[in-house]
Design a protein around this nucleic acid. Sequence first.
DNA 1: TCTTTTCTTGACCATACGGTCAGGAACCGC
DNA 2: GCGGTTCCTGACCGTATGGTCAAGAAAAGA
Lengths: 215, 215
Amino acid sequence: MTASSRPLSRKDIRRENERLILEAAEKVFAEAGFGGATMQLIADMAGLPKANLHYYFPTKESLYRQVVQAIFLDWLKAADVFDAAPGPVEGLGAYIDAKMEISRRHPAGSKVWASEVMHRAPVIQDYLETTLVEWTEGRMDVIRRWIAEGKMDAVDPRHLLYMLWATTQHYADFGHQIETLNGGRPLSDVQWAAAKETVKGIILKGIGAQPSPGA
Amino acid sequence: MTASSRPLSRKDIRRENERLILEAAEKVFAEAGFGGATMQLIADMAGLPKANLHYYFPTKESLYRQVVQAIFLDWLKAADVFDAAPGPVEGLGAYIDAKMEISRRHPAGSKVWASEVMHRAPVIQDYLETTLVEWTEGRMDVIRRWIAEGKMDAVDPRHLLYMLWATTQHYADFGHQIETLNGGRPLSDVQWAAAKETVKGIILKGIGAQPSPGA
DNA sequence: TCTTTTCTTGACCATACGGTCAGGAACCGC
DNA sequence: GCGGTTCCTGACCGTATGGTCAAGAAAAGA
């Protein structure tokens, strides 16, 4: 429309269209599940003809796989706060904050992941067996170190991690239920803050986390 | 096969076939989601011809609705322990135990529920708005009473409930991921016990639950 | 400008799905 | 045993879906 719409280079076109498609696909897969999603719906939401989707992504499954992969990488990145922290209060606190923020800003991704895992991970099982296993082992080591240093109680690190994942992702995956129980309205800023504080408060106190000295 | 297979009365036949179908449907809906599930697959799993399913349940959606309703009622019943308890240690402890046990024994139901809510509850939204809202209000009152009686910290009861749901249902909904992280094996009895104790320990300590006197 | 490569898209196809139906089998009250 | 009701099921139908294709438009390179 404006004079600024210069002709796009081919690389730009490809990048832009792939972005459009992946964005639309994430929403549709989240709302309808893999089986319920249709290429036509994704195409409509992306504003492209269906045949164009198949030009960039040969099959529905390949498109879906890319969506799930992107989510997984996002999650791994968001967990870097874990390692640098001096103790559980900072490390787990920041991790909870980060994951709650993802649940708030990016709920569709969390839903797609949940759906995939619930259906026995037919597409990303290899990721679970390799990357996720390694990541989990590493984080459990950090927790065990904190325990050894007397910075928290000797809780089972594996189940602690599951609690963190469960509680934070719940706000995305079950967002609709939470919204309904909130009178049909999305959580306000204040309510989101209360959620974060409650989760952090209960878990950090529950594991007997000791504040790091000199903070 | 055996001589004991007497002819079934009509009521028995209806009850038995409906049970077979609902059981199979729950599994298939849990594994494939509503969109991915097919009546043919459910029929095969139930050992009945597809047309027979449509004799008992006119549409796929009506069958699905009955499956979800059954799960919901099951969950409500499992929460009776809440009210009778003298304090949070007994009440929440028993509730966590009960919900963990459901996650272990009845994971398919939990998955169907999760899937339904994740897809914005197209079928059971009315239940969310009525029964679930009332149930939640009632339980929050109990928690507020415990707080007023000094039996636990003044945590936000709403988010405490969400934490309970999230952590316990996680063991069903993400059971496949947990299994993968456990070397591909289901959790053993000992591991389930550890999960229960860890969850109960962290939450009860995290909310500062005071043991009831005279226990 | 001419060629080549990339991108676009309406029309099309085979398949699989939810659902229907008619006709027969099995059970039940009388 | 008989009439009526319930149960059973193979065959069938319309539709929607994932995916294909061929012909053209647009950009890049020469």
